Deep mutational scan, measured.
Amino acid sequence: VTLFVALYDYEARTEDDLSFHKGEKFQILNSSEGDWWEARSLTTGETGYIPSNYAAPV
């Protein structure tokens, strides 16, 4: 399992994006889409796309 942590807060701009807060942890589901990764929040259980430059490996 690849775990990442949010470096900044992010507010979803589309219904496919995932809103999150700094410090929140994610499981990365798909990182082959370039700058946007499909991720599941370990806090909320929700799935959506996150900007890859807002996350770092745990």
Rank of each mutant, 00 (worst) to 15 (best):
N30S: 12
A12F: 02
T43Y: 09
A39G: 05
P57I: 08
W37G: 00
D17F: 14
S31T: 14
A39S: 03
L3W: 11
I28R: 03
D9G: 06
D35S: 10
R40S: 05
G45E: 04
I50L: 04
N53P: 06
T44W: 02
Y49G: 03
T44E: 01
E46Y: 09
E46D: 09
G45F: 08
P51R: 06
P51A: 03
P51K: 06
R13H: 10
P57A: 09
W37H: 04
L18F: 09
K25M: 15
A6S: 04
G48F: 05
Y10Q: 01
T47E: 08
T47C: 10
F4I: 08
S31M: 15
V1S: 13
K22C: 08
L42F: 06
A12L: 02
V5W: 06
V1L: 14
L29H: 04
A56T: 10
L3C: 12
E15C: 14
E33V: 11
A6E: 02
S52D: 03
L18G: 01
T2M: 13
E24R: 00
T47S: 09
A39C: 04
A6Q: 00
A12G: 12
Y10C: 04
T2A: 11
I28K: 03
L18S: 01
S41R: 13
A6R: 00
W36V: 07
A39I: 05
A39M: 05
V5Y: 12
S41W: 01
A6W: 02
F20N: 00
E33P: 12
P57K: 07
A39W: 01
E11N: 09
P51E: 02
G48N: 00
D17Q: 15
Q27W: 15
V5P: 01
R40N: 03
T14W: 13
Q27E: 15
A6H: 01
E15R: 10
R40F: 09
G23I: 00
A55D: 03
A6T: 04
F20Y: 01
S41P: 00
A55S: 06
D35V: 09
L3F: 12
T44I: 01
K22S: 06
G45Q: 07
L7C: 10
V58A: 09
E24G: 01
K25T: 11
S32A: 12
Y10R: 03
N53C: 14
A12I: 02
I28D: 01
T47A: 07
D35T: 10
L42H: 05
F26D: 00
S31I: 13
P57N: 05
S52H: 08
P51M: 06
N53D: 11
V5Q: 08
V58M: 11
F26H: 00
L42Y: 06
K25E: 09
A55G: 06
F20H: 00
Y8Q: 09
A12D: 01
A12C: 06
D16V: 13
E24H: 07
A55V: 15
L29K: 05
F26C: 07
I28F: 03
H21N: 10
D16S: 15
G34A: 13
L3I: 15
E11D: 10
R13P: 07
F20S: 01
T2F: 11
E33R: 15
Q27F: 14
A6L: 03
P57Y: 05
F4V: 12
V1R: 11
P57F: 06
W37N: 01
L42D: 03
R13C: 14
V5L: 07
Y49I: 08
A12V: 02
T43C: 14
S32C: 14
G45D: 05
S19M: 03
L3R: 05
V58C: 11
V1P: 12
G23W: 04
E11G: 05
T43V: 10
L3A: 07
P57G: 05
E11F: 09
V5H: 05
N53W: 15
D35A: 10
S32E: 10
T44F: 02
E24A: 05
W37V: 07
L3N: 06
I50V: 06
S41I: 09
S19K: 04
Y49Q: 08
I28P: 02
E11S: 10
I28T: 00
A56N: 06
A39V: 15
V1E: 14
P51Q: 05
D35M: 10
A55K: 02
K22W: 04
K22H: 06
T44A: 01
P57H: 06
G48K: 03
F26W: 02
T47W: 09
S41K: 14
T47D: 04
V5M: 08
Y49T: 07
L3H: 10
S31A: 14
D17C: 15
G34K: 12
I50A: 00
L18K: 01
D17R: 15
F4D: 01
V1M: 13
D17V: 14
T2H: 11
S41F: 04
Y8N: 06
S52T: 07
V58E: 09
G45L: 06
A39N: 00
K25L: 15
D16G: 15
T2E: 13
Y49H: 08
H21Q: 12
E38L: 15
D16H: 15
Y54N: 03
T44H: 03
F20W: 01
W37F: 08
R40W: 06
K22R: 10
F26L: 12
S31C: 15
D9S: 07
E46M: 14
G45Y: 06
V58L: 13
Y8I: 07
D17T: 15
A6P: 02
F4M: 11
V5F: 09
G23E: 03
D35E: 13
V5T: 06
T14C: 15
P57M: 08
L7Y: 03
H21P: 06
W36G: 03
Q27S: 07
D9A: 06
S32Y: 10
G45N: 08
T43A: 11
E24Q: 08
E15Y: 09
A56M: 10
L3Y: 13
P51S: 05
R40M: 12
V58D: 09
S41T: 04
V1Q: 13
D9Q: 04
E38F: 15
V1H: 13
G45I: 04
G45W: 07
T2C: 15
Y10V: 01
Y49A: 05
Y49K: 14
D17W: 12
A56I: 13
G48A: 03
G34N: 12
S19G: 07
R40C: 08
F20C: 03
A12R: 07
K25V: 15
W37L: 11
N30F: 07
S41L: 10
L7I: 09
G34F: 09
E38V: 15
T47Y: 08
S41V: 06
F20K: 00
L42C: 14
L3V: 14
Y10W: 10
E11Q: 12
D9L: 03
A56S: 10
E33N: 15
G48Q: 00
T14S: 14
E33W: 10
L3M: 10
S31D: 12
T43S: 12
E11Y: 09
E11A: 09
S32Q: 12
V58G: 05
N30L: 06
N53R: 11
Y8A: 09
F4S: 04
H21F: 12
F26K: 00
E46V: 10
K25C: 14
S19T: 09
D9C: 10
T43E: 14
Y49F: 13
Y10E: 01
Y8D: 07
D35W: 08
S32G: 11
L29P: 05
D16I: 13
V5R: 04
W37E: 00
I28W: 02
P51G: 03
S31L: 13
F4R: 04
I50F: 04
D35L: 12
D9H: 05
L3E: 10
K25Y: 15
A56P: 03
Y10D: 00
D9Y: 04
T44M: 01
E11P: 04
P51C: 10
A56K: 10
D16P: 04
E46C: 14
Y54E: 02
N30R: 08
T44D: 02
Y10H: 06
F26A: 00
A56E: 11
W37C: 04
Q27M: 13
S52C: 11
L18V: 04
A56D: 06
E24D: 15
L42K: 03
R40A: 04
A55Y: 04
S41Q: 05
E38H: 14
Y8K: 07
E11K: 10
R40E: 05
P51Y: 07
E24N: 05
L18C: 02
E11V: 14
